[in-house]
């Protein structure tokens, strides 16, 4: 790792001004857990890092209103894990965080970093996507809204401009919806997932009104399983339907092979865990 400059602006707007849309060697840094890995590996060599640690404190907390949860981009994953509001309004997030990496990483890693990195192996993006979360993004021209679903452009790629920052995540109120998330690891228990499947279901008993199902990690980016959703919507769940949904999910995914598993194996995992995620959401899990 080689030396670089570090700026510590005290507002998000000031941070945006320090970024350059055409210079990839200037980058924001939040918790630094993802960026440091890239810097240590020599794949990213910054000229300048813009730390977000000193920006307005309102971006590092969770608040709740009638329309749902607001999560500041600088909220650490452990603050999110311990938030009573999150536990009450979207407990699937709380459950997901318990096995997301380890306490040392969660203590510094942030929600904004987990999203902006575009790493398909992260646990939070599929969950937020399934919950229908949206982002507030701030750039030189002001604010825009963006669905988390539309954030990812590809493997480690997002649609954000180099001088745009995620300010906030908005998780809409879930009403009576139920949710589940499965993190499937094939290495150590706290490894990055080989597959993540999140399901958020609006239904009545075994009858599904609408389902949002998202897969990640086995795929090049967090991916909504629309074909599987189509199989499920308006139907009553039984084993046969779940199998069909599992098979349908394969059509939506661009699988990638890595040390965590081959493509044929990840396809098998996908079929099994789409089923399990739906069953879990219907059976036990509340949103």
């Amino acid at each position: 790792m080689i030396p670089f400059d570090l700026a510590e602006p005290t507002s998000l707007a000031a941070a945006v001004k320090l970024l350059d849309p055409d210079d990839a060697t200037i980058r924001p840094i939040a918790g630094g857990t993802a960026l440091m890995l890239m810097m240590k590996a020599g794949v990213f060599r910054p000229e300048k890092l813009i730390s977000l640690r000193k920006i307005e404190s309102k971006y590092s907390g969770v608040s709740v209103g009638a329309d749902g949860l607001r999560i500041g981009a600088m909220t650490t994953l452990s603050a999110l894990e311990r938030s009573a509001d999150v536990r009450k309004n979207a407990p699937v997030i709380t459950r997901t965080l318990l096995t997301l990496s380890n306490i040392r990483v969660r203590n510094v890693a942030t929600v904004g970093g987990a999203l902006a990195h575009g790493d398909p192996h992260m646990d939070l993006p599929p969950v937020l996507m399934a919950l229908g979360a949206t982002l507030t993004v701030i750039g030189p021209k002001g604010e825009r809204k963006l669905a988390v679903e539309d954030l990812f452009a590809g493997y480690y790629e997002t649609v954000l401009e180099k001088n745009e920052l995620i300010a906030e995540v908005h998780v809409p109120a879930q009403g009576t919806k139920k949710a589940s998330y499965f993190k499937v690891t094939t290495g150590s228990a706290d490894d990055w997932p080989a597959l993540g499947v999140a399901a958020v279901i609006e239904g009545d008993g075994k009858a599904i009104k609408s389902a949002r199902i998202v897969a990640s990690a086995a795929t090049d980016k967090a991916t909504r399983l629309k074909s599987a959703e189509a199989v499920l919507n308006g139907k009553t769940v039984d084993d046969k339907l779940l199998r069909e949904a599992g098979e349908a999910a394969l059509q939506d995914c661009e699988f990638i092979a890595d040390v965590r598993g081959s493509v044929p194996y990840k396809r098998e995992l996908m079929k099994v865990y789409v089923r399990r995620a739906i069953r879990e959401a219907l059976g036990g899990g509340t949103h």
Binding site: L37, A41, T99, N102, T186, G187, S188, A189, D190, D191, W192, D258, V259
Partner: peptide, 27 residues
């Protein structure tokens, strides 16, 4: 259960603790 140096054409493809995992407490 899981540790393995993956080697492809003599090249270690998981030469970091991000991709070579050792047991943690949950294991």
């Amino acid at each position: 259960m899981f540790e393995k140096m993956h080697i492809d054409g003599g090249q270690v493809t998981n030469a970091s603790l991000a991709d070579y995992k050792i047991p943690g407490f949950h294991d």
